[in-house]
Design a binder for these strands. Structure first.
Length: 395
DNA sequence: TCTGGGGTCCTTTTCCTT
DNA sequence: TCTGAAGGAAAAGGACCC
């Protein structure tokens, strides 16, 4: 029956952001229960293997490598909360972390294992709230809006349900934020870590969001934060107080508008349940810097290996790509990229290497390199692609 | 003091064509 | 043949995220 009145009001959006707590380190603590409550740092490349045999869970503490013995390059991937108490944090150089907490246990990252646990916690969350957006290995957005019970207590009841299910079925801890949109949900999930649930309502903006530093906004990084501070803008509230025309003039129309919207908690992006990859890449930092002229063979081997890995990645995931690129990081950390778009998409290691070599010819090869990377972009499904070029298929 | 690897997205610059 | 404008695509760089 047609009604003459207004349609029934749609329920308020309840968007949740779920963030696993110290994900990699927590997975390692489940594998090695004897490390519980000890400072554990995940990272580094060639960590000495534990000098023990038998079931890893039975290894004595002394069998694990200590951070103080680490000598290579690299940064901390994740630190357990016990390690964070010593000031160790993600992205910190391992040598610096070693000074802060020399006795920390150092474990190599095992991404295959983390991906297994990642799939597990996502499946549990999705069973409760099917509308899920994958945001990387340790976080997701969920849309509770139309899930039965999703509106109860502002979304808190459903968040608690998911948090408890993940804890019971995996032993892992997570934090959730529920808000009217993704921007606020993301901020909310970070407010009470670890193990917290934070529900933000529109009227909480002034009291809970505006006092926070601008850097807490997802999308305001160190550079934007620094620029804002130069204008005396330190908190999200101070950002919200800036006139829109000034922001647009100062930061560009698009970015200025976005800063203004973000400060006012406005964000209407939907929870995206599907996405296609844009590019795939492989890169490696050398143990010691390599000079293109003096270490030609070694660089060639690195390039070969990267191209082969990339070809395997593409084939495993079922993609071909038209644009091939390289990335070089020089000793002074300067980064350059060169890329080339081919007539036909490719996925074979030989074809990637051929194009990458062409790109290398256009780069400055008179200086020592710290890192070499290879990238394939412009990805397509092979069925979408034009008929493969038989000449390229030979590689 | 030393700074990883895998991504996305945006802006600016360069190059090509008309 | 030269020149410049305009527009689009590709290339390059940079900020940001996990």
């Amino acid at each position: 029956m047609a009604t003459q009145g207004t349609p029934p009001p749609s329920p308020p959006r309840r968007i949740a952001h779920l963030d696993m707590d110290a994900f990699y380190a927590s997975v390692e603590l489940l594998r090695y229960p004897q490390l519980r409550d000890l400072p554990v740092v995940v990272g580094g490349r060639r960590v000495a293997a534990p000098e023990a045999t038998g079931s890893p869970a039975q290894w004595p503490l002394h069998a694990f490598a200590r951070l103080r013995h680490y000598t290579g390059r690299g940064v901390v991937t994740t630190a357990s909360y016990a390690a964070r108490a010593h000031g160790v944090g993600s992205a910190m150089p391992l040598m610096q972390a070693a000074r802060l907490c020399p006795d920390a246990i150092l474990l190599p990252a095992d991404f295959d294992e983390y991906r297994r646990w990642s799939r597990a916690f996502k499946a549990i969350a999705q069973e409760v709230a099917p509308c899920m957006e994958d945001r990387g290995i340790d976080e997701v957005y969920l849309d509770f809006t139309h899930v039965p019970g999703g509106q109860r207590d502002g979304g808190r009841a459903m968040a608690r349900l998911i948090q408890r299910a993940i804890a019971e079925q995996t032993g892992l801890s997570c934090s959730l934020g529920v808000a009217p949109n993704k921007l606020l949900a993301k901020m909310a999930s970070d407010m009470q870590k670890p193990g917290g649930i934070t529900v933000l309502q529109p009227h909480d903006l002034r009291t809970h969001v505006w006092p926070m530093p601008c850097r807490k906004v997802h999308g305001i990084g160190p550079k934007a934060s620094e620029r804002l501070q130069q204008h005396g803008i330190h908190t999200i509230g101070e950002l919200a107080a800036q006139p829109l025309p000034w922001l647009r003039a100062e930061f560009g129309a698009s970015h200025g508008q976005w800063l203004h919207d973000a400060a006012w908690g406005r964000d209407d992006r939907p929870v995206q349940t599907h996405s296609e990859p844009v590019s795939m890449s492989r890169e490696t930092t050398f143990e010691e810097d390599l000079h293109p002229r003096h270490h030609k063979a070694a660089l060639g081997e690195h390039l070969d290996r990267l191209c082969h890995q990339l070809a395997l990645d593409l084939q495993r995931k079922g993609y071909v790509g038209k644009t091939i690129g390289i990335k070089l990081r020089y000793r002074n950390f300067e980064v350059i990229t060169r890329d080339q778009t081919l007539a036909q998409p490719v996925a074979a290691a030989g074809a990637i290497r051929h194009a990458a070599t062409q790109c290398l010819r256009r780069a400055d090869l008179s200086r020592s390199l710290r890192l070499l990377g290879v990238r394939v972009a412009n990805l397509q499904r092979p069925t979408d692609a034009a008929q493969p070029n038989p000449n390229l298929a030979l590689f």
